Computed example of a mutant assay.
Amino acid sequence: MSLEEKVPQDEFGLRDVWEIVLGRKWLIIATTAICVGLALAYVTLATTIYESRAMVQIGKVAGQPLDNAPQLASRLMNHYTLVNTELAQKQLPKLYAVTPDKEDGIILTLKARARSPQEAQQYLQGIIQRLLANQQQRYDQLFKARQAQLGQMQAEYEDLRPPLNAKKRMGKAQTDSASALLLLEQSRRTETLSTMLVAIANMENELAPVNTMPTIETLSPRYDPNPVAPKRLLILVLAMVGGLMLGVFLALVQNGSRRQADRVASS
């Protein structure tokens, strides 16, 4: 049996594919043109969407954040997103994303989308203003509570601390009577005062600006003049590539069908 007889007649190589493509080039061109035309119609009719971006740093009181960043992000998205999923996808302007920073857990990045850059910026600015107002209210409550605790502790310290003339009288009484009870009482009071003084110093440090600060806007809302959707160039390129692939596939299918019909007719 010769080598030619061993090779099935149905097998063909790249040269055969190329010949099929050339022979049905108008089918491939027409398919590509249709795909590109549909993509062009889509990008022309689709709503152009622009995005605005801002960053917020969550405040803290005594070193503790006012809010948990992921929980705050979830609350914001739930508050500004429609319950109906289908309507939420079409909603414009809308809060598109609230993302906590991976490296700094108190930083939130907010993104809003709208039909124009200015609309996206204004919408996001309104969200930021309401967020800062709510955070400021929470900050004021916690800060005042901490200040009240500090004031109470300072007042208790002053009440326990004896005046100078009382110290002199106590010292004289101890010299005259050598009272062990008075010495013990003085030692206990001194220890209590020292403990309170340390606690007062710690609380004052916690209320220092480095550990206590309100929520601030670290990046004001700004927009990109280039739309984020639809990606016109990308869609057109994908349509062209997809159209070419679909055209080649149709050409191969058509060629295979014709060969099958010829084989049936010859048999």
Rank of each mutant, 00 (worst) to 15 (best):
A88P: 03
R263F: 05
L76S: 02
L164C: 02
T81K: 03
Q137A: 08
M55F: 02
L87A: 05
S116F: 00
R161K: 13
G37Q: 00
R258L: 15
Q89D: 15
L108I: 06
K102N: 11
T99L: 03
V17A: 08
R259E: 04
G171M: 03
E158V: 13
W18G: 15
D176S: 12
R130Q: 15
L87T: 08
P214Y: 00
D159R: 15
T218W: 05
F12Q: 05
D176P: 06
Y139W: 05
Q141N: 15
L14H: 04
I29T: 13
Q260M: 07
P117C: 01
G242D: 04
K60Y: 09
E51A: 07
N205T: 14
A180M: 05
Y123G: 00
Q260E: 14
L193Y: 01
I20R: 00
A69V: 01
Q135L: 03
V21H: 11
R259C: 09
G23D: 15
V17C: 14
I58W: 02
Y157H: 14
V237M: 08
T218Q: 05
Q121K: 10
K231L: 12
R146H: 07
H79C: 08
I34L: 13
P117V: 06
G256T: 00
G13K: 12
L82A: 03
N211C: 01
A145L: 14
K231W: 07
M203S: 06
P163H: 02
M1I: 08
V248C: 11
R146Q: 11
